[in-house]
Each structure stands twice: as structure tokens, then as C-alpha cells.
């Protein structure tokens, strides 16, 4: 809409924020979920992210970053703050047995469903790789925007993603073997 003086100079106007909130909630929540592995904590973080974004919306400069990049940067800071607060312990720890090839107790084998395994493996990745996975599969950002977010080219993001997938795939196969024993 135009202001009395012409077009609005603030692209992030009132209605736009409401639109954006709706459009980005799922991505922010899932980014947080992938980073911390716990739904309740991810909800807390997502709420915190939008509160921060709401408070700071006047500072958002659409000419300098997309809203997705901006709000996910807020989310990343919230995750880092949270992990710092929690001593940087991953919220879902991979059972040590799963890593060192030691046989798992039967009860643990029964409890380890596919998703829990995957979450646990993500939690053991380096932070940068976790971030990449969370941006790609949690938030669903295209490589081009991940590049914008991380300050890397689209191609570099593709290569990094391929590497982390290979790494994850290898862990997956190892844990498959462990579980089959």
C-alpha cells in the first residue's frame, strides 16, 4: 500500500510481519528442532526467535538480506545461546555404544528407532555440519539461500552438503551394522 507520501519505505510493515510470521514459522521451528533435537525445547526456541524478531523488526533491512536469512540468523543465535547456556551438550546424545561398535543391550536396540538414530547421528556432527543439515532439511532453504546465509556460494554449499551427506550415510551404515549384531 502507498503511504500518504507515496510508497512505503518500510517493506516490513505491519501486515507483512504477520505474513512473514506465518510463512516462516515452520522453517524456524524445524531448524531449531534439527539443531536441538527436542520438540519442547525447539518450540521454546522458536517462540524466542519470533519474540526477538518482533522486537527487532524495525531493524530488518530487506535490501540487505531476505527475511528467511534474517530470521534464521536470529534462530541460529538463539540455538547457540541455548547451547551455551546448557554447556553445549547436544540435547540428543548418541549412545556411546553406537559409535564404538560395542554390542548394544537388547533393550537399547529395541528402543532405537530410525528417527532417534538419525537425530543422534546429527547431534554428533560438527556444528557447521549440523547447521547445514538443519538449514537444508529442517528449514528447507535452497542451496542459494543457504549460501546467502552462510556467506558461501551456491556451489560451495552443494559440495559441503554432499560431503556431510556422505558422512551421515557412513555413520548410518555403521550403526546399521551395529544394530544388526
Amino acid at each position: 500500500m502507498r503511504t500518504p507520501f507515496g510508497r512505503s519505505t518500510l517493506p516490513l510493515d505491519a501486515a507483512a510481519f504477520a505474513e512473514l510470521y506465518q510463512a516462516h514459522l515452520a522453517a524456524v521451528f524445524n531448524y531449531c528442532l534439527f539443531r536441538v533435537g527436542d520438540r519442547q525445547l525447539a518450540e521454546d526456541l522458536a517462540a524466542d526467535v519470533f519474540e526477538r524478531a518482533w522486537r527487532a523488526r524495525g531493524r530488518y533491512r530487506p535490501d540487505q538480506a531476505s527475511f528467511a536469512t534474517w530470521v534464521l540468523a536470529v534462530a541460529r543465535n538463539a540455538v547457540v545461546d541455548c547451547q551455551r547456556h546448557n554447556g553445549r551438550h547436544p540435547m540428543v546424545a548418541l549412545p556411546a555404544d553406537l559409535l564404538d561398535d560395542a554390542p548394544l543391550p537388547d533393550t537399547a536396540v529395541e528402543a532405537a528407532d530410525e528417527q532417534a538414530r538419525l537425530k543422534a547421528m546429527i547431534a554428533t556432527l560438527p556444528e557447521a555440519d549440523q547447521d547445514l543439515i538443519a538449514l537444508k532439511f529442517g528449514a528447507g532453504l535452497p542451496n542459494r539461500q543457504i549460501g546467502e546465509f552462510l556467506g558461501r556460494s551456491e556451489g560451495a554449499v552443494g559440495v559441503a552438503l554432499h560431503r556431510v551427506m556422505r558422512k551421515l550415510r557412513a555413520s548410518w551404515e555403521i550403526s546399521d551394522e551395529v544394530l544388526e549384531r
Binding site: 516490513l12 507483512a16 512473514l20 516462516h24 535452497p142
Partner: peptide
């Protein structure tokens, strides 16, 4: 109103 919400995802 500005509309920024074409999904970037």
C-alpha cells in the same frame, strides 16, 4: 502492503 512471503523454502 509489502508482501515478502513468497515462500523462499
Amino acid at each position: 502492503m509489502k508482501s515478502l512471503s513468497a515462500s523462499p523454502y
